Computed example of a mutant assay.
Amino acid sequence: MKKLPPLIKIAVVDDHQLFRVGVVALLSDYNDMEVVLEASNGKDLLTQLKKTTPHLVLLDIEMPEMNGIETTLALKKEYPDIKIIILTMHNEEEFIFDLMNKGANGFLPKDKSVETVVDAIYSVMQKGYYYNDQITQAIIKGNSGHLKAPELFNKAASLTEREIEIIKLICEQKTNREIGELLFISARTVDNHKTNIFTKIGSKTTIGIVMFAMQAKLIS
Rank of each mutant, 00 (worst) to 15 (best):
M1A: 14
M1I: 13
K3P: 02
P5K: 08
P5M: 08
P6C: 13
I8A: 10
K9E: 06
A11Q: 02
D14N: 13
D15M: 14
H16E: 11
H16Q: 11
L18M: 15
L26Q: 15
L27C: 04
N31G: 05
L37V: 02
E38L: 12
E38N: 09
A39W: 04
L46E: 06
T52C: 10
H55P: 00
H55C: 03
V57D: 04
L59R: 01
I61G: 06
N67D: 15
I69R: 12
K76T: 05
K77D: 14
P80A: 11
I85S: 01
L87W: 00
T88L: 06
T88I: 03
H90N: 15
N91T: 13
E93S: 11
E94G: 10
E94V: 10
F95Y: 09
K102N: 12
N105A: 08
N105H: 08
G106Y: 01
D111W: 07
D111K: 13
A120K: 01
I121Y: 01
I121Q: 03
Y122V: 10
K127N: 13
N132K: 06
N132I: 08
T136F: 13
T136S: 14
A138Y: 02
G142T: 07
L147Q: 05
E151S: 11
L152K: 07
L152A: 07
L152I: 08
N154Y: 06
S158C: 07
L159S: 02
T160A: 10
I164W: 03
E165V: 10
L169I: 04
I170S: 06
K174C: 13
E181V: 13
I185L: 10
T195Q: 10
N196A: 14
F198Y: 15
T199D: 15
I201A: 07
K204T: 13
T206E: 07
G208P: 00
F212A: 05
A213D: 01
A213L: 06
S220P: 01
